[in-house]
Design a protein around this nucleic acid. Structure first.
Lengths: 152, 152
DNA sequence: AGAGATGTGATAATGAATTATCGATATCGG
DNA sequence: CCGATATCGATAATTCATTATCACATCTCT
């Protein structure tokens, strides 16, 4: 999951030529998360691997990782954009109402929608895609009576 | 759908004592829409009934209508908040990828999710609620080859 | 190891949505 | 119909996320 894991052809671009501790910390943080992370979350977690990490560097690096197709942005209702690794296919997300964190659901659990894309609804609406978000309690918070705010 | 339709007990509060053309235009606009509206959309439509309507008045009135429980806010991924009348029960939304407008789906079409709330997923996630959004083409845009941007 | 370009961190600047201000206007009880 | 005042419209101010700036540190190639 370190340097050797990064495709040099993609990593190295006109604006992204050097491998630094900050960039690896940020990419590893996003890859190791259980779900999409916001900029503040990335900053907080990656700072443990890269002490003194600046917020501007997180914004810069996230933008570069988007441009080099290492990560993708995920938007949730009423929230700042979150980011997750690219290439995980169609899936849905789960938000824990207790610890407020987002989780990625397995593909097998994801496609819960009874009406597949391409269907025409009775009213004439043609469905081309869907977003499903589940809300509830993550395994940790569902077990604990007094849940903390520090999930995986 | 006019003045007589408004519960005076709810309409009249410490900060909302008078009935004005602007307030009725805004509430009627939200009630007559096919789906949730954003602030700019409310402003554009209500201005037809209340010429010269100011944007600040839309913000003010929407906030008051929220506080008096005449409307509710609906958030969509990556968008400004939208507003719809209160009391329409559980339903889902449809966004037309052609004209970019939101539609409210009938209740009978809404509950498309195969896993009902209260279910415990195999991983231990307890589902308490869900949001489903469908994307595609509204009846008007599905019919027209060159769709306009002025839906119902 | 050294030169030079790239990357970083702190912070100022920007941009967009929302809110506050204030003189003018319209509402509604009397 | 009048007067007190709630509300309006125009715009300045505020808030918050994101971006630009710049001096200093770090990486890479030789």
């Amino acid at each position: 999951m370190g340097i050797e894991d990064v495709d040099r052809g993609r990593w190295y671009t006109a604006r992204m030529q050097r491998q630094t501790a900050q960039r690896h910390a940020i990419l590893d943080t996003i890859r190791q998360a259980a779900g999409p992370l916001s900029i503040p979350q990335i900053h907080a977690r990656a700072s443990q691997d890269a002490p003194g990490l600046g917020l501007a560097t997180v914004y810069r690096t996230v933008k570069l990782l988007l441009a080099t197709e290492h990560i993708v942005a995920v938007d949730f209702p009423g929230e700042e954009p979150h980011y997750e690794p690219i290439g995980r296919g169609h899936h849905h997300h789960f938000r824990c109402l207790s610890c407020d964190h987002w989780f990625e659901l397995d593909r097998c659990l994801g496609c819960l929608v009874a009406i597949p894309d391409g269907t025409t609804l009775p009213d004439g609406f043609v469905v081309e895609a869907h977003h499903l978000t589940l809300y509830g309690r993550c395994p940790r918070c569902a077990a604990e009576p007094n849940p903390t705010a520090s999930p995986a």
